[in-house]
Amino acid sequence: MRKRFGDAFEATDLEDVLARQSIGHLVLVGAQTDACIRSTAHGALPEATTSPWSATHAPRKT
């Protein structure tokens, strides 16, 4: 999936993809926790209360 914004939920069909595949948990990982990972985690928060899946943010180990 291609994305144009830091938040992977913004202007993508990620929520629909997760729902169609009955994905119950989402673990976010990436190279820059303070950028796209944070944006996606924040974008998932409103969806977590209305969707059958939840978002989990795992901080990067250094």
Score class of each variant (00 low, 15 high):
1 M>N: 12
1 M>G: 13
1 M>F: 07
2 R>N: 08
2 R>W: 05
2 R>P: 01
3 K>T: 01
3 K>N: 07
4 R>N: 09
7 D>S: 09
7 D>E: 07
7 D>M: 01
8 A>L: 09
8 A>I: 07
10 E>M: 04
12 T>C: 02
12 T>Y: 08
12 T>H: 07
13 D>C: 03
13 D>I: 05
14 L>Q: 01
14 L>S: 05
15 E>C: 08
15 E>H: 10
16 D>P: 00
16 D>S: 10
17 V>S: 02
18 L>F: 00
18 L>A: 03
19 A>H: 04
19 A>C: 01
20 R>A: 08
22 S>I: 00
23 I>E: 00
23 I>W: 09
23 I>V: 15
24 G>I: 01
25 H>I: 06
25 H>W: 09
25 H>G: 02
26 L>F: 03
26 L>Y: 05
27 V>Y: 13
27 V>G: 02
28 L>Y: 04
28 L>H: 04
29 V>M: 09
29 V>A: 13
30 G>N: 02
31 A>F: 05
31 A>N: 11
31 A>L: 11
31 A>M: 04
32 Q>Y: 12
32 Q>N: 10
33 T>H: 00
34 D>A: 12
35 A>L: 11
35 A>S: 08
35 A>Q: 14
36 C>S: 06
36 C>H: 04
36 C>L: 05
36 C>F: 06
37 I>W: 00
37 I>Q: 03
39 S>I: 00
39 S>Q: 14
40 T>K: 03
40 T>P: 02
40 T>A: 06
41 A>G: 09
41 A>H: 06
42 H>L: 14
43 G>T: 03
43 G>N: 06
44 A>L: 09
44 A>D: 02
44 A>K: 00
45 L>H: 07
45 L>K: 10
45 L>M: 11
46 P>H: 06
46 P>A: 03
47 E>P: 00
47 E>T: 05
48 A>K: 02
49 T>Y: 13
51 S>G: 01
51 S>Y: 06
52 P>V: 00
52 P>Q: 07
54 S>L: 14
54 S>T: 14
54 S>I: 12
55 A>Q: 12
57 H>V: 13
57 H>L: 15
59 P>R: 14
60 R>S: 15
61 K>L: 15
62 T>L: 15
62 T>R: 15
